[in-house]
């Protein structure tokens, strides 16, 4: 009986949920094209604030912040993905070994501990070992909390790959390395790509931990935006927000499509 799946009011609730989720983002996107200098009145469609982002008074500051954000995200996501691939192979293909449960808990630790606690402990740790805060400390912190985000899609993908393919390769005298590089790695690729993209976004998005370990004078995009917003929301912030928003959506859509395509192959 089909009727038992449908409850009156659940569809409007879902629509309401989506409206709530998207309305603020859409409003900011629309207002980023506002020709007026004030954020309250609408002054016609204009790309004025996008030009301002790249050439205006704060362009140098935001440009430097964007370069930091992108290079840290690139390095942290690359490192985290490499670490996560190795970990996933060991966890999924390594059979039972001592400390497997503990390792699983360790990988998921960055997801369990509240962000603010990670931020405080990381700052204290760097201070205790005498490492001055800056680019390197941000990178190390990002590398750490990116690992579970890269690991989860990679391990999920690997669990879905039967080991008969590698087995066949080994039967045909492929070395362990050849079987990995030529058989397993290509099969894992969709998981690796989505893991990499997710880690990249997570690094690009982080504010709280970065804010603690960045040190004076060092900015990433979120901390630069936060600094500006504290003085009030200006139109150029909306243009930057829209650009970042579109970047995130682009990356997630890519991760989604790659993953979906991957599910159709073995």
């Amino acid at each position: 009986m089909k009727g038992l799946r449908h409850y009156p009011g659940f569809l409007p609730m879902t629509i309401g949920c989506l409206v709530l989720l998207y309305a603020p983002l859409i409003v900011v996107m629309v207002y980023s094209f506002n020709g007026s200098n004030s954020i309250t009145t609408w002054g016609g469609f204009s790309l004025h604030w996008y030009v301002d982002v790249f050439t205006g008074l704060e362009a140098a500051r935001f440009g430097a912040a964007a370069r930091n954000s992108l290079s840290i995200a690139f390095l942290a996501a690359s490192g985290a993905t490499l670490i996560a691939v190795a970990a996933a192979v060991a966890m999924v293909r390594g059979g039972q070994f001592r400390g497997k449960q503990a390792t699983f808990a360790l990988i998921n630790l960055p997801l369990m501990v509240p962000e603010i606690v990670i931020a405080v402990s990381t700052l204290i740790f760097f201070s205790a070992i005498g490492l001055s805060t800056g680019y390197l400390t941000i990178l190390l912190a990002h590398l750490t909390f990116c690992i579970p985000f890269a690991y989860l899609p990679i391990a999920a993908r690997l669990q879905g790959i039967e080991d008969t393919y590698e087995q066949a390769a080994r039967d045909l005298y492929a070395t362990r390395w050849q079987a990995f590089r030529l058989i397993l790695l290509p099969l894992m690729m969709p998981g690796i790509m989505s893991g990499y993209l997710l880690a990249f976004i997570i690094s690009l998005d982080d504010f709280i931990i970065t804010n603690f370990v960045k040190g004076a004078g060092m900015e990433t995009l979120p901390t630069a935006i936060f600094g500006s917003v504290k003085q009030g929301i200006k139109p150029n912030i909306m243009a930057i927000s829209t650009l970042m928003l579109l970047t995130s959506v682009l990356f997630v859509t890519l991760a989604y499509l790659i993953n979906r395509k991957g599910q159709k192959t073995p």
Partner: peptide, 9 residues
């Protein structure tokens, strides 16, 4: 996946 700071702002 959109930046939490941007969503809050």
């Amino acid at each position: 996946w959109v930046n939490l700071l941007i969503r809050t702002v």
